[in-house]
Nucleic acid binder design. Structure first.
Lengths: 134, 134
DNA sequence: CTAGTCCTTCCAGTCATGGGAAGGTCAAGA
DNA sequence: TCTTGACCTTCCCATGACTGGAAGGACTAG
């Protein structure tokens, strides 16, 4: 299978697939013409990576997940540990974003949003202690 | 004031302050020795930027916020509009993260996390349709 | 005078791509 | 056979918002 078809099947852009080869996440064969030739295992791996990326795993985490996937003697505890670390990262980011949202929302709420220059949002950004988003 | 002190006061790393000058967010004067000399207005701006960045505004949004802050004839509606766009971005990101969190959590929950290789997390990543995080 | 701490610029790297140029390959139709 | 046009290749540069580090100048305390 050539790269464009693989891109359609896996949902990943061709550029991204080439990049994944460059960083050795996948190692497709080459045809006599120099074209990449993707086997079913490559396509499998790319779909796997696409889903893992969709869940927010970093490339390096994907690499470890793939290694665990390939290792038939793995302990599921190792996979779970990896996932739990990532879950905590996600939870942390959500918390940060919610704090930002709350702080900004209170400023926006206080702003008249009319033609006058007085603006609690700008005041909040200008004054120390007026914005907290921890 | 020299850069290190400004860094302490504003809470921004010196490197970042230099970067902000490079992209013309700020324009500190220079002393005879070539050192940057920060006036109170620079320090004010840097603190403003630090707070805006803390609320998740991009550099370009910070630039627009600063311009509005400087413009004494601004309409607060313009500031509010900027903030509301950003609020929507934040809300979108939170939604995406929560979808990821939910999908990953259900996989993690199904995983025994013991010494055996069987792993619903890997199965979920490998099988089409098993993971949804939209 | 020297040691140590500042300051400067410049270059390169991060992460995960995306854009686009220059050029080779292949399949279909005139 | 020739020519399109769609595909493929590599290569280099750009993104955002920094961060690290090297090389070298400036200043302060002892």
């Amino acid at each position: 299978m050539n790269i464009k078809e693989v891109a359609e099947v896996s949902g990943l852009p061709a550029k991204t697939i080439r990049y994944y080869e460059e960083i050795r996440l996948i190692c497709p064969l080459r045809g006599a013409n120099g074209y990449r030739v993707f086997g079913t295992s490559d396509i499998h791996k790319l779909s796997f990576i696409a889903r893992a990326r969709g869940l927010g795993f970093s490339i390096e985490e994907c690499r470890r997940l793939l290694a665990l996937y390939d290792d038939k003697k793995r302990a599921s505890a190792d996979v779970k540990a990896l996932a739990e670390v990532h879950l905590r990262d996600i939870a942390t980011k959500i918390k940060e974003l919610r704090a930002m949202e709350a702080a900004l929302q209170s400023l926006v709420h206080a702003c008249a949003g009319d033609a006058r220059p007085d603006c609690p949002i700008l005041m909040g950004l200008a004054k120390p202690g007026a914005v907290c988003c921890d």
